[in-house]
Amino acid sequence: MQRYTVRRGHPWRERDHRAQVASAQEFATDAFAGPVRPGADPAGVGLGPVLEWWESHADKRLTLADVAARAGLSVRTLNRRFHEETGRTPMQWVTAVRIRRAQELLERTDHGVDRIAHLVGFASPAHFRVQFKRLSGVSPQAYRRTFVAALVPS
C-alpha cells in the first residue's frame, strides 16, 4: 500500500485524501463485518418479519434451513437469535403457533381432530393430541366440548 503525503494548503489534495480514507474505512468495515446477506436485518428489527412469514406458513413442512435462508442467517445464528428474542426454540414456537391455530379450528369448525391435525401442520394426529394436551392442559375433544358448552344457551 502506498502512502501519500498531503500538503497543507491544497484543497483538492485534502479532498482526495479524505475520499481515500473514507474508502479505506468502508472497505475495512465490509472486510471484517462481512457483506449484508440478502434478507438479513441491517435495520435491527429482529426476527419479526421472519416470524410473521413462518406463522403464515406453519402448516407447511419447513426445515430450519428453509427458515434460516429466508432470514438470511445460518441455522446456528437463527437458533441463537430465536432463543434470545422469543425465549423458546424454533420447534417450541412453531408447535405453539400450530396449537393456537388448532384451537381456533376446534372453536369455529366441526372438522374432526385428525383433519385439524393435518390442516395445522402435524404429521401425525397422535403427536398432535399429545402436543395439544401438553400445551393446553386438555385433549382436543375436551377443549371443543368446553367451548361448545359455553356457546349453548342454558
Rank of each mutant, 00 (worst) to 15 (best):
V152S: 01
E85R: 14
E14Y: 06
Q131V: 04
V45M: 14
L73P: 04
F122E: 00
L106V: 14
P49A: 15
A65L: 14
R70M: 02
R76S: 12
R13E: 12
H83T: 13
V152H: 02
E26Q: 06
P153Q: 09
D16G: 05
G34D: 00
A43I: 15
T63L: 08
Y143I: 11
W12M: 09
Q141N: 13
V21Y: 03
Q20P: 00
T109W: 13
S124R: 08
P153N: 07
H10E: 14
A58K: 10
P11K: 13
S124G: 05
E84P: 02
L151A: 15
T89N: 10
Q141H: 12
E55S: 11
V152A: 11
V152L: 08
R81K: 11
R145H: 01
A142G: 09
R13C: 05
V120P: 00
T95S: 06
V130Y: 06
P38C: 09
R37M: 02
H118L: 13
P125C: 07
I99C: 04
E26F: 08
L151F: 05
K60T: 07
V97C: 05
L106G: 08
Q131E: 03
Q2G: 15
L119F: 04
L51F: 09
A126Q: 08
R101N: 01
P49M: 12
G72V: 01
A102S: 06
Q25K: 13
P49N: 08
A68R: 05
A22G: 08
A149L: 10
T29N: 08
R18W: 09
A123I: 12
T77L: 13
L47H: 04
D41W: 03
F128P: 03
E55Q: 13
L73H: 02
L151H: 10
S23D: 12
K60F: 07
D30N: 02
A71I: 01
Y143L: 11
V120K: 03
T86P: 00
H111T: 03
V6I: 15
G137V: 10
Y143W: 15
Q131S: 11
R145N: 03
R13I: 10
V50F: 03
L64A: 03
W93E: 03
A71K: 00
S74L: 04
H127K: 04
R15G: 00
D41E: 04
E107F: 11
Q25F: 06
A142R: 15
P153T: 10
E107L: 10
R7V: 11
S139Q: 09
A102N: 02
N79C: 11
V6F: 06
R76F: 01
A102I: 11
E14C: 10
E14A: 11
R108G: 10
P38W: 08
R37F: 03
Q131M: 07
H83K: 13
L64Y: 03
W12A: 09
E14R: 06
E85D: 07
L106D: 05
A24N: 07
V21R: 14
V148Q: 04
A69C: 03
P153L: 08
H83F: 13
H83M: 10
A19W: 01
W12H: 14
V45R: 15
V75F: 07
